[in-house]
Amino acid sequence: MYLSVHAKAANAYRNMGAVTQVDGASPGQLMMLLFQNLHIQLLRAHKALSDNNIAVKGLALGKAVRILDEGLKAALIKNSEDGFAQSLSDLYGYCAKRLTQANFYNDPLPIEEVLRLMDPIADAWKKVVAEQAQSLRPMEVE
């Protein structure tokens, strides 16, 4: 596929921005980036389904499942005594399964379900990262 010089430059700029964002991110910020990208892919897949664009839907859902499995699930600390980590792992696995079903049956309902399940977790990460940033700020001296 041929890309114009402008398109190549734009892609390089976007990739550089993503790399810079990741390189300078804390672990909490990386989690937020994963959740943001997951949300974007889910919205993209939902829109593609309503537009009957099956190819875009499949790509977006494939990326979303990879974010769940290779990003969020892989980031969990594997501790057999940590019930919370196991519950999150199970939830991420369930969401990946639902997205696979959405892809197979061209059904938007599982995508909407995953959005409802993941958005509160993403919001919790935003609060954690904001609190960490607040605690790292130097104290003002009067």
Score class of each variant (00 low, 15 high):
residue 85 A to E: 07
residue 13 Y to M: 11
residue 93 G to A: 09
residue 10 A to Q: 13
residue 2 Y to N: 01
residue 90 D to A: 15
residue 71 G to Q: 08
residue 39 H to T: 15
residue 140 E to C: 03
residue 38 L to I: 06
residue 48 A to Q: 09
residue 75 A to R: 07
residue 119 D to Y: 09
residue 14 R to Q: 07
residue 15 N to G: 00
residue 76 L to M: 05
residue 128 V to C: 01
residue 43 L to D: 10
residue 34 L to C: 15
residue 56 V to R: 05
residue 123 D to L: 06
residue 31 M to P: 07
residue 35 F to T: 11
residue 124 A to T: 13
residue 72 L to C: 02
residue 86 Q to T: 04
residue 81 E to T: 09
residue 26 S to W: 05
residue 72 L to Q: 02
residue 94 Y to T: 08
residue 135 S to M: 12
residue 52 N to H: 10
residue 46 H to P: 04
residue 121 I to F: 09
residue 49 L to E: 03
residue 13 Y to C: 01
residue 142 E to T: 14
residue 90 D to V: 05
residue 7 A to L: 00
residue 128 V to D: 01
residue 108 P to T: 07
residue 67 I to T: 06
residue 108 P to M: 08
residue 114 V to D: 01
residue 130 A to E: 10
residue 26 S to F: 07
residue 47 K to E: 13
residue 48 A to L: 06
residue 129 V to S: 04
residue 121 I to N: 07
residue 68 L to T: 08
residue 35 F to K: 14
residue 100 T to V: 13
residue 140 E to N: 12
residue 37 N to E: 15
residue 110 P to H: 02
residue 122 A to S: 13
residue 32 M to F: 00
residue 73 K to T: 08
residue 122 A to G: 09
residue 94 Y to R: 08
residue 79 N to V: 03
residue 103 N to H: 08
residue 90 D to M: 12
residue 4 S to N: 00
residue 121 I to E: 05
residue 124 A to G: 15
residue 140 E to S: 12
residue 66 R to H: 05
residue 109 L to W: 06
residue 24 G to S: 10
residue 58 G to R: 14
residue 134 Q to M: 02
residue 10 A to T: 03
residue 93 G to F: 06
residue 53 N to I: 00
residue 65 V to P: 02
residue 18 A to F: 13
residue 27 P to M: 04
residue 127 K to I: 05
residue 33 L to Q: 15
residue 44 R to D: 12
residue 125 W to V: 15
residue 78 K to D: 06
residue 92 Y to F: 12
residue 69 D to I: 09
residue 136 L to Y: 00
